[in-house]
Amino acid sequence: MPLPTVILPGYFAGAAEYLELQQSLVGLGFPAVTVPVRRRDWLPTVGGRSIVPILRLLDRTVKQVLQQYNASQVNLIGHSAAGWISRIYLGEKPYIIHGDVMEDAGLWFAHPSVTTLVTLGTPQYSLYERWTRKNLDFVNNNYPGAFHPNVHYVCVAGKAIFGARRPGQLLAYNSYKLTCGTGNTWGDGITPVEAAHLEGAENLVIEGVMHSPRRVGLWYGSPEVLPAWVPYLK
């Protein structure tokens, strides 16, 4: 039987936006649960502050799923910023850089419980977005690349919009430039392809896929897109 799968929504997204993805995974035979994040749960994290409130929700959900399904491991899917938040969750280093929790908080060191981490449109680094630098530096300084050998990392990038300084492409241009330093490149409209991948991971590029479930058109969780990455789940 496939392992249960936990979905962590992207930044400022609520669990309801991932219901279709959750139901699609269940239909494919994967017991799936979305971390019950509400948009207001992200408010304490604004401005590059601690993401401990999200780690608490993620940890609680993973432990509940392990117990519910009598499983020793889960698949973990992180969309957008949830991908690098999941990398914090996997790691051994105490995430105490904001001074809001103690070293014994127990909101990390989860890699023994995660067999596969799938990141969807995750900016794995950001060169010029100052609000995320402190958190992302913590991730990449401590856990570079596909860091944990016991975890299968699958990093999925969408190739839908080429960034340019013209109507329809300007948002992508500005977002790509903040992230990787180059606006004239391909990505999902928010995350450039090159920033969505990790060294040593199973790195995928899917044509025509947009960043968010709120956008018109295909996104990573659309039923038509799932065959490109779901087979990598355990």
Rank of each mutant, 00 (worst) to 15 (best):
W108P: 00
F109N: 13
F109Q: 13
F109A: 13
A110I: 02
A110D: 10
A110H: 14
H111W: 12
H111N: 14
H111V: 05
H111D: 08
H111K: 13
P112F: 06
P112K: 09
P112Y: 10
S113W: 13
S113C: 03
S113N: 11
V114Y: 09
T115W: 07
T115G: 08
T115R: 15
T115L: 07
T115C: 10
T115H: 12
T116F: 06
L117K: 01
L117G: 02
L117D: 00
V118M: 10
V118A: 01
V118G: 07
V118E: 12
T119L: 00
L120W: 05
G121M: 05
T122G: 07
T122E: 04
P123M: 04
P123D: 05
P123C: 08
Q124C: 08
Y125G: 00
L127S: 08
L127H: 12
L127R: 15
L127P: 06
L127G: 02
L127K: 14
Y128D: 07
Y128T: 11
Y128S: 10
E129L: 09
E129K: 05
E129N: 12
R130E: 09
R130L: 07
R130Q: 08
R130W: 13
R130A: 13
W131G: 03
W131N: 12
T132K: 08
T132A: 13
T132W: 10
R133E: 12
R133W: 12
K134I: 11
K134T: 14
N135F: 03
N135S: 05
L136A: 04
L136K: 04
D137W: 11
F138G: 07
F138V: 06
F138Y: 11
F138H: 10
V139K: 02
V139F: 01
N141K: 00
N141G: 14
N141L: 12
N142S: 12
Y143D: 01
Y143M: 02
Y143H: 08
P144D: 11
P144A: 07
P144H: 07
P144Y: 12
P144N: 13
G145L: 10
A146G: 13
A146W: 01
A146S: 11
A146L: 00
F147V: 03
F147R: 03
F147H: 15
F147D: 00
H148R: 04
H148Q: 14
H148C: 08
P149E: 13
P149S: 15
N150S: 14
N150G: 12
V151T: 06
V151W: 00
H152E: 04
H152Y: 06
Y153I: 07
Y153D: 03
V154S: 11
V154D: 03
V154F: 02
C155W: 01
C155T: 15
V156P: 00
V156Q: 08
A157R: 01
A157L: 03
A157W: 00
G158H: 11
G158M: 09
G158T: 13
G158N: 09
K159M: 03
K159D: 13
K159C: 05
A160V: 07
A160W: 14
I161T: 13
I161V: 15
I161K: 06
F162D: 04
F162A: 01
F162H: 14
F162N: 05
F162P: 00
